[in-house]
């Protein structure tokens, strides 16, 4: 695992996979992650290694710790024990440089309900140092594919759960991230929208590393039918098991 200690040149962001500074083939490494929550071990010695431009699905029932793992993976929650490296940076110890390369879709809506979809996207674009939120090719693709145009001027608080989810998906791609982490991207979506998300995941996986969770076996089947071929793991009893 020589990449762990490899210094990164982060002179510009967001970085592209073709950048010579990322001469590594492992993007995410979770080592022996344990998490105790309200007196219960949610994650027990969980380890995961994800390579470049790969697509990884984590399947698990509600309450098994998928969201907790996603939050730990993107640095929002500290594990009780264990380490996470993203592009060689220990995310719970470093300066947070990895955030510029990361796009995250949370299970909850994290857009401001008082602002319109467009205002939210503009705000996040500015905070990522981008003038136009749709200047990022994946964000534009998601925006068009998911049909968000018609709700551009609608306040997020007035959108249904499914449309909020779509808006959050576009938000997660605004910075043209190298690593996309999505917590249940298909939950609350109808079959057609799930198909659109599958198409999006397929397109994104050609040059991005994607990790997503899913709780519904039927949704996973829809994704597989659409031709995406993720490495699938099942989260069970706090551990990841390869799913066949």
């Amino acid at each position: 695992m020589c990449f762990i200690n490899a210094p990164l040149n982060r002179s510009s962001s967001p970085h592209r996979i073709s950048d010579p500074v990322f001469d590594v083939d492992t993007v995410v490494q979770a080592i022996d992650i344990w998490k105790r929550y309200r007196g219960r071990w949610v994650l027990k010695s969980l380890s995961l290694e994800v390579g470049d431009s790969s697509l990884t699905a984590i399947l698990g029932r509600n309450g098994v710790g998928k969201t907790t793992f996603i939050k730990i993976l993107c640095g929002l929650v500290r594990p009780t024990k264990g380490k996470i490296f993203i592009y060689g940076e220990n995310i719970h110890r470093g300066q947070g440089d990895y955030k510029a390369t990361l796009g995250v879709l949370m299970h909850e809506n994290i857009l401001y309900e008082e602002l319109t979809v467009e205002e939210n996207l503009n705000y996040y674009a500015k905070m990522y140092g981008v003038d136009d939120p749709l200047s990022s090719a994946p964000a534009k693709e998601a925006y068009e594919l998911l049909g968000l145009e018609k709700y551009r001027d609608t306040k997020v608080g007035h959108l249904s759960f499914g449309w909020k989810k779509r808006a959050n998906i576009v938000r997660s791609l605004i910075n043209d991230p190298l690593l996309v982490i999505m917590d249940e991207p298909t939950s609350g979506l109808d079959e057609q929208a799930t198909g659109e998300v599958a198409r999006l995941l397929e397109k994104l996986s050609s040059n991005k590393t994607i990790i997503f969770t899913i709780s519904n076996k039927e949704d996973l089947d829809i994704l597989l039918e659409k031709g995406i071929k993720p490495d699938i793991y099942r989260l069970e009893n706090g551990r990841l098991i390869e799913y066949v």
Partner: peptide, 9 residues
């Protein structure tokens, strides 16, 4: 929305 804030670089 704090998650969006904390994920910003």
């Amino acid at each position: 929305t704090i998650y969006g804030v904390r994920l910003l670089p």
